[in-house]
């Protein structure tokens, strides 16, 4: 239950500085909070509200719109099994039943050891490799009962720790715009004329 750490506040400020309006950083900052704590805490939302100049109710309003944000602790690994058409045509329902049995939880539940949360998901953009699933948003394609079991066994044995970061971390690479390389934000109140390169001459 935490506000953002000092290091994350620094990161948050760097992210905010890339937008003409601080509020645009709301979703990236919610990801940052979820990366920090595994889910989005109330304290973090109140903190983010202050950072982006919104009310906590607005932050919660935005956050709760998006499915990736969790407001209660979830497993270290969240497994999302796709159930939309292409996957359904390839047997996703059977896979879901198998997964529930294998993990001993219903969709939306977390295993007793707190390691895995199982969820039903909608289309994950891997429709030709159906049925597919994501573990913390990393893909497994053409999943069978056997390959699902292997995945779970590997997760339990810690064999995928390097490949799959704990829930909350999506991309492990962040964008950094070096101070001397950035073109800068262009806020509506600051820019009143056409960019210089639109002067009818070639730039190079």
């Amino acid at each position: 239950m935490a506000r953002l750490t000092e290091e994350n506040v620094r990161l948050a400020q760097e992210i905010i500085s890339r937008y003409p309006r601080p509020r645009s950083a709301m979703i990236p900052l919610l990801h940052l909070a979820q990366e920090q704590d595994g889910y989005v805490t109330e304290d973090a939302m109140a903190h983010i509200a202050g950072l982006v100049g919104a009310s906590p109710a607005e932050v919660y309003g935005t956050a709760s719109f998006y499915e990736m944000f969790k407001f209660h602790p979830v497993g270290r690994y969240v497994i999302n099994i796709c159930g939309t058409m292409s996957c359904a045509l390839a047997g996703a329902e059977d896979l879901m039943h198998h997964a529930e049995e294998k993990l001993g939880v219903r969709m939306g539940g977390t295993t007793d050891d707190g390691l895995i949360t199982l969820e039903r998901a909608e289309c994950q953009a891997a429709c030709t490799e159906a049925p597919c699933l994501q573990t913390n948003y990393r893909y497994s394609f053409r999943v069978t009962a056997e390959s699902f079991d292997t995945l779970v066994d590997d997760l339990r044995a810690g064999r995928l720790a390097d490949e799959i970061p704990p829930h909350g971390t999506v991309a492990r690479v962040r964008q950094h715009i070096p101070a001397d390389k950035g073109a800068g934000v262009h806020a509506p109140e600051d820019v009143k004329s056409a960019p210089a390169w639109l002067d009818g001459k070639a730039a190079l």
Partner: peptide
């Protein structure tokens, strides 16, 4: 990050005077 470092993105791209930032933004499931 690589393109910024190499001068393909950002300030004064390829020395042309053309400058623009590309800000990576990501969604959250909707």
């Amino acid at each position: 990050n690589d393109a910024y470092a190499a001068g393909y993105v950002g300030r004064n791209i390829l020395g042309s005077g053309f400058s623009v930032d590309i800000v990576l933004h990501w969604g959250a499931g909707a």
